[in-house]
Measured scan of single mutants.
Amino acid sequence: KEQQNAFYEILHLPNLTEEQRNGFIQSLKDDPSVSKEILAEAKKLNDAQA
């Protein structure tokens, strides 16, 4: 469930490039146990690119 939530949120971050988004999603698939950390990174990058 946590992985699904992170997946959904990353898909809807407006400021990520397609490449960045795909990278985060691939990381989620590779290691779902760190989905919280991956989501935090994605949000940080999204904010930095706002």
Score class of each variant (00 low, 15 high):
22 N>K: 15
45 L>H: 04
20 Q>G: 00
5 N>Q: 14
29 K>G: 03
50 A>I: 14
18 E>V: 11
7 F>A: 08
15 N>F: 15
38 I>A: 04
33 S>G: 07
24 F>Q: 00
50 A>W: 09
1 K>S: 15
25 I>Q: 06
20 Q>A: 04
32 P>D: 09
2 E>A: 02
24 F>G: 00
4 Q>L: 03
34 V>Y: 11
48 A>Y: 13
35 S>V: 13
1 K>M: 15
7 F>C: 04
12 H>D: 11
29 K>A: 10
19 E>A: 09
20 Q>Y: 01
24 F>L: 13
40 A>T: 07
14 P>H: 06
33 S>K: 12
24 F>E: 00
23 G>F: 09
14 P>R: 13
45 L>S: 03
10 I>N: 01
41 E>P: 00
44 K>V: 11
17 T>A: 05
9 E>W: 08
50 A>D: 11
38 I>P: 00
42 A>N: 00
48 A>V: 13
40 A>H: 13
20 Q>V: 03
11 L>W: 06
43 K>Y: 10
5 N>M: 15
4 Q>M: 10
40 A>S: 11
19 E>K: 07
40 A>E: 15
50 A>C: 03
25 I>L: 10
41 E>V: 13
26 Q>V: 02
37 E>Q: 13
28 L>A: 05
10 I>Y: 01
37 E>L: 09
16 L>T: 00
29 K>Y: 12
26 Q>T: 08
38 I>F: 03
34 V>L: 10
33 S>H: 07
12 H>R: 14
17 T>K: 05
18 E>Q: 11
20 Q>C: 01
20 Q>T: 02
34 V>A: 14
46 N>I: 01
11 L>S: 10
17 T>R: 07
8 Y>G: 08
24 F>M: 06
18 E>Y: 06
5 N>I: 15
38 I>Y: 04
45 L>V: 14
30 D>L: 14
48 A>D: 15
33 S>R: 13
18 E>D: 05
6 A>R: 05
11 L>Q: 09
5 N>H: 12
5 N>G: 08
30 D>R: 12
9 E>K: 09
13 L>I: 03
13 L>Y: 12
49 Q>L: 11
27 S>P: 02
25 I>S: 05
36 K>W: 07
28 L>W: 05
45 L>D: 02
2 E>W: 04
34 V>F: 13
44 K>Y: 10
19 E>F: 09
1 K>A: 15
8 Y>W: 06
7 F>S: 05
48 A>E: 13
35 S>E: 08
26 Q>R: 01
12 H>S: 07
1 K>H: 15
10 I>G: 01
39 L>V: 11
20 Q>M: 04
50 A>Q: 13
19 E>P: 09
20 Q>P: 00
27 S>D: 11
33 S>A: 06
14 P>I: 10
22 N>D: 11
44 K>S: 06
9 E>Y: 15
28 L>N: 01
22 N>P: 00
48 A>F: 13
16 L>F: 01
2 E>V: 02
4 Q>G: 06
31 D>A: 12
3 Q>K: 04
34 V>T: 14
9 E>T: 05
27 S>G: 10
32 P>S: 04
10 I>M: 06
7 F>W: 15
29 K>V: 09
37 E>C: 04
46 N>F: 01
9 E>D: 06
21 R>T: 07
32 P>N: 03
27 S>Y: 08
2 E>D: 14
29 K>I: 12
11 L>F: 07
21 R>Y: 05
1 K>V: 15
12 H>G: 05
22 N>M: 10
45 L>Q: 14
22 N>C: 04
41 E>W: 08
21 R>H: 02
18 E>L: 08
48 A>R: 15
9 E>M: 09
22 N>H: 07
48 A>G: 12
19 E>Y: 04
40 A>D: 14
4 Q>A: 11
27 S>K: 04
33 S>T: 14
25 I>H: 07
9 E>A: 04
13 L>Q: 03
50 A>S: 14
31 D>V: 09
4 Q>N: 05
23 G>K: 11
18 E>G: 09
43 K>D: 03
24 F>N: 00
7 F>R: 10
36 K>G: 14
34 V>G: 13
34 V>D: 12
22 N>T: 14
39 L>C: 04
45 L>W: 12
38 I>E: 01
22 N>V: 12
13 L>K: 01
44 K>I: 13
39 L>N: 02
25 I>F: 11
37 E>W: 11
40 A>F: 11
25 I>C: 03
35 S>D: 07
7 F>K: 08
35 S>P: 06
17 T>P: 01
2 E>M: 01
44 K>T: 03
16 L>E: 00
15 N>I: 02
35 S>R: 04
14 P>S: 11
28 L>E: 01
15 N>A: 07
17 T>E: 04
5 N>K: 10
16 L>S: 00
34 V>H: 05
31 D>N: 13
2 E>H: 04
47 D>F: 10
14 P>W: 07
30 D>M: 12
38 I>N: 02
25 I>N: 05
19 E>T: 11
13 L>H: 08
14 P>N: 11
22 N>G: 09
16 L>R: 00
24 F>V: 01
39 L>P: 00
49 Q>F: 08
1 K>L: 15
45 L>M: 08
24 F>K: 01
39 L>S: 05
43 K>L: 10
7 F>I: 12
35 S>C: 03
2 E>I: 02
7 F>E: 10
22 N>W: 11
17 T>C: 01
44 K>P: 01
14 P>L: 09
6 A>Y: 05
15 N>H: 14
23 G>V: 13
37 E>F: 13
26 Q>C: 05
43 K>M: 11
31 D>S: 15
31 D>G: 13
42 A>M: 02
44 K>N: 10
25 I>T: 07
38 I>D: 00
30 D>Q: 05
33 S>Y: 13
16 L>K: 00
39 L>E: 06
14 P>Q: 15
33 S>I: 12
45 L>Y: 07
7 F>T: 09
35 S>N: 08
26 Q>A: 12
18 E>N: 13
30 D>K: 07
38 I>K: 08
2 E>C: 03
18 E>M: 10
5 N>F: 05
1 K>N: 15
39 L>H: 04
39 L>F: 03
44 K>R: 05
47 D>E: 14
47 D>L: 09
34 V>C: 05
19 E>L: 10
22 N>S: 12
30 D>N: 05
33 S>M: 13
18 E>T: 08
17 T>I: 03
8 Y>C: 02
26 Q>K: 03
27 S>M: 08
50 A>F: 14
10 I>Q: 01
41 E>T: 07
23 G>Y: 13
42 A>V: 02
31 D>I: 07
50 A>Y: 15
17 T>F: 06
21 R>F: 04
21 R>K: 09
28 L>F: 06
6 A>W: 08
38 I>S: 02
47 D>H: 08
46 N>D: 02
14 P>D: 12
50 A>N: 14
1 K>G: 15
47 D>S: 14
29 K>P: 02
5 N>C: 04
27 S>C: 04
43 K>H: 14
24 F>Y: 02
21 R>V: 06
19 E>Q: 08
49 Q>M: 09
24 F>P: 00
6 A>N: 11
7 F>V: 12
41 E>D: 09
15 N>M: 08
29 K>E: 10
4 Q>V: 07
